[in-house]
Amino acid sequence: MRKKFGIDIDGTVTSPDTIVPYMNQDFGLSLSYSDIKEYDLSVHVDISKSDFAKWWLDNEARIYEASPLTKEVRAVLREWESAHDLFFISARSKHLLELTKEWFVKQDLPFHHIELIGSHDKINAAKQYEVDIFFEDKHDNAVAICEQCKIPVILFNTPYNQEPVPEGVIRVNNWSEAKAWVDTWLKENA
């Protein structure tokens, strides 16, 4: 049975350490990916949250355009694309839609729909598109989507999302583990 997969982009499809070199370069830091223990990156710089937000707005397009894929994602998505609908739901701002689509094409990644909502609150989009499962890296998003939408959420392990998770949020370390869990879930929910 065809399912709708809701998939976050940044930190899930793209490598979760993408922003670290940019922060190191622009702020004179020497952070490693393992140093990032909170989703809020502004805690690592000696400027105000508003100044960090301005830096992000000034740099997000170049960072997104050069974002590397996380390992295994292309092969897994290609395997799923003919059997399921791949809906990418991202907190990216709407004005980045063309850049995002061009990145998907350049990376040779399949997609059926890309929705940039400009907010981390993905519950309404998950409900609107009636996704059956969600793939996420942000802890509070994963928990909220699971609880509000009553669907399983695959949470990709990162240093910044180590809080406890409820039943229904499944931690994985990579796309191979995600695929193995989803394959079992699909057989059980055929």
Score class of each variant (00 low, 15 high):
residue 99 L to P: 14
residue 168 G to A: 03
residue 121 D to W: 06
residue 185 W to A: 01
residue 99 L to C: 13
residue 113 H to C: 07
residue 167 E to R: 10
residue 187 K to T: 03
residue 142 A to W: 01
residue 99 L to K: 12
residue 149 C to K: 00
residue 107 Q to W: 04
residue 143 V to M: 09
residue 119 S to Q: 05
residue 166 P to N: 08
residue 140 D to I: 04
residue 125 A to Q: 05
residue 128 Q to I: 03
residue 151 I to W: 03
residue 165 V to F: 09
residue 133 I to M: 10
residue 161 N to Y: 10
residue 120 H to R: 12
residue 141 N to C: 15
residue 183 D to I: 09
residue 174 N to T: 06
residue 162 Q to N: 14
residue 130 E to L: 11
residue 115 E to K: 12
residue 121 D to S: 10
residue 136 E to R: 04
residue 127 K to E: 11
residue 144 A to S: 11
residue 125 A to R: 00
residue 178 A to Y: 04
residue 136 E to V: 04
residue 133 I to D: 06
residue 108 D to A: 08
residue 161 N to R: 06
residue 168 G to W: 01
residue 158 T to M: 06
residue 179 K to F: 09
residue 148 Q to E: 15
residue 157 N to L: 09
residue 100 T to I: 14
residue 172 V to I: 15
residue 185 W to M: 03
residue 165 V to S: 07
residue 188 E to L: 13
residue 171 R to N: 02
residue 120 H to G: 11
residue 149 C to E: 00
residue 169 V to W: 03
residue 156 F to M: 12
residue 146 C to P: 06
residue 126 A to E: 03
residue 163 E to I: 01
residue 167 E to W: 04
residue 144 A to N: 02
residue 115 E to S: 13
residue 160 Y to M: 11
residue 112 H to D: 14
residue 121 D to L: 08
residue 144 A to F: 00
residue 184 T to R: 14
residue 125 A to M: 04
residue 129 Y to P: 02
residue 172 V to Q: 07
residue 184 T to G: 05
residue 177 E to I: 08
residue 164 P to V: 09
residue 158 T to P: 02
residue 150 K to Q: 14
residue 101 K to C: 04
residue 113 H to D: 06
residue 129 Y to L: 14
residue 184 T to N: 12
residue 130 E to H: 09
residue 154 I to K: 01
residue 130 E to Q: 13
residue 153 V to E: 04
residue 126 A to V: 15
residue 163 E to N: 10
residue 105 V to L: 12
residue 98 E to G: 11
residue 110 P to H: 04
residue 179 K to W: 07
residue 168 G to C: 02
residue 131 V to T: 12
residue 168 G to Y: 01
residue 190 A to M: 09
residue 139 H to V: 01
